[in-house]
């Protein structure tokens, strides 16, 4: 399985850009980790249900009712760039 890891391509999927040095290092290190996790192939998992969560919870609903939360000032207080109660981002549509 592990020979297929392409660190640069996977980084791009995660919106990360790696330096040459990082890419080389990660390729070696993560290939080692993938070799290690291959040991899971020896476990018989036939008829075993997957566990997503340790508590047996399914859908949890709350009442669909409005309540007070952040004001727009509070919600925007950490925005790196903003104006007129809006977040500024680079132009998306040409």
């Amino acid at each position: 399985m592990s020979d297929k890891l392409d660190v640069r391509y996977t980084a791009q999927l995660a919106r990360l850009e790696l330096s040459e040095a990082e890419a080389t290092r990660f390729q070696t290190q993560l290939s080692q980790v993938l070799v290690y996790v291959e040991k899971l192939r020896e476990v018989n998992v036939e008829d075993v249900e997957p566990t997503a969560h340790s508590s047996a919870l399914h859908n949890v609903f709350r009442e669909d009712a409005p309540r007070d939360w952040f004001t727009s000032e509070e919600a925007l207080q950490n925005a790196p760039r903003q104006a007129n109660h809006l977040i500024i981002v680079p132009k998306v549509i040409e």
Partner: peptide, 23 residues
């Protein structure tokens, strides 16, 4: 992040993530 993205990526999900959830 890269390792996690890889084990969830198309074609590897069953081999890694689903199998890990079963174990």
């Amino acid at each position: 992040i890269i390792l996690g993205t890889y084990v969830l990526s198309s074609g590897y999900y069953d081999a890694y993530y689903l199998r890990a959830q079963k174990v």
